[in-house]
């Protein structure tokens, strides 16, 4: 069958080395005792303690978390609605414009999205701060949510919704008691995606935030522009660890669920 030749093994080894060596080095040097990031001076966890005492970082982390929670939740609601409208809404006036507006933010350079939203907020006289960042993040991440959810909705057997209507559900009841539970995994991954995008965003937040509410990426950016620092390495290590644990847990859970379902289906077919 498929062949795992020396070429493939080499490609995979080099490829994953390229992907992971920088991250591994970053993590290792976060435990470096020296202030100089490039010279190893023995193991130490002092930068983690420094980080815990750094008010500026802690505040920024708190702002980022608030923004990410609020915007990803709003984006999930709006994105799910948009996906439903796209897949099930039928024809309506301006449908092409609507689907264009859903897809465009995915390929739009962040500098343009950020600039245009900032100009909007100034034009309507909205004071910039956490709220404007939430609005901005909701707008661009709802499009990602809607892509994830609509691909699930599109593959979903429409007759299941019709069966609910046939058995006496109103359209809203059918959505709540049948559609939503079935697309829930896609809605959850949409939320996670929106949450990560918001946590990660530097450019749009830089444009739309006010001086009082600096997010973590903005804080990191302004500090690494001045050069490499072991404190940032420590912070990065914490973030990487959180994401790694999250992604691995999620993939293990979904893998288990798939395996169990497969086993049950096989057993059912055998009876």
């Amino acid at each position: 069958m498929r062949r795992l030749t020396w070429f493939n093994v080499t490609a995979l080894t080099l490829g994953f080395a390229f992907l992971y060596i920088p991250i591994v080095i970053l993590v290792i040097y976060s435990f470096n005792a020296s202030k100089l990031v490039t010279v190893w001076a023995g193991f130490s966890t002092k930068w983690y303690f420094e980080l815990m005492r750094n008010e500026a970082f802690l505040n920024a982390a708190w702002v980022t978390l608030k923004v990410a929670l609020a915007s990803s939740t709003a984006a999930t609601v709006l994105g799910t609605m948009a996906a439903y409208v796209m897949v099930r809404g039928g024809r309506f006036f301006g449908r092409t414009l609507f689907s264009g507006m859903i897809y465009a933010p995915l390929v739009m350079p962040e500098v343009i999205t950020g600039l245009s939203l900032l100009l909007l907020f100034i034009a309507v006289g909205l004071e910039r701060g956490v709220f404007t960042v939430v609005l901005a993040h909701t707008t661009f991440s709802m499009c990602f949510v809607s892509i994830v959810v609509s691909s699930r909705l599109a593959t979903f057997d429409r007759s299941i919704e019709e069966a609910a209507l046939d058995l006496g559900c109103t359209p809203f009841d059918a959505f709540r008691s049948v559609t939503l539970p079935i697309i829930a995994p896609a809605v959850i991954s949409g939320w996670l995606l929106a949450f990560t995008l918001s946590l990660d965003d530097l450019v749009i937040a830089s444009f739309t935030t006010g001086p009082a509410s600096t997010t973590l990426p903005i804080r990191i950016f302004s500090s690494i522009r001045l050069g490499v620092s072991p404190e940032i390495n420590a912070l990065s290590t914490i973030l990487i660890a959180l994401v790694t644990i999250g992604v691995i847990t999620a993939s293990l859970v979904s893998k288990r669920a798939i395996m169990r379902q497969r086993a049950e289906e096989q057993r059912a077919a055998a009876t």
């Binding site: 007759s159 299941i160 019709e162 069966a163 046939d166």
Partner: peptide
Amino acid sequence: PNKRAVNMMFQSYALFPHLSVAENIAF
């Protein structure tokens, strides 16, 4: 459709995957 005294058995069966057999019947 939800107000008609007519019910349908779908070609794909359209069973609700998140509900048990009894819950499907009780739906």
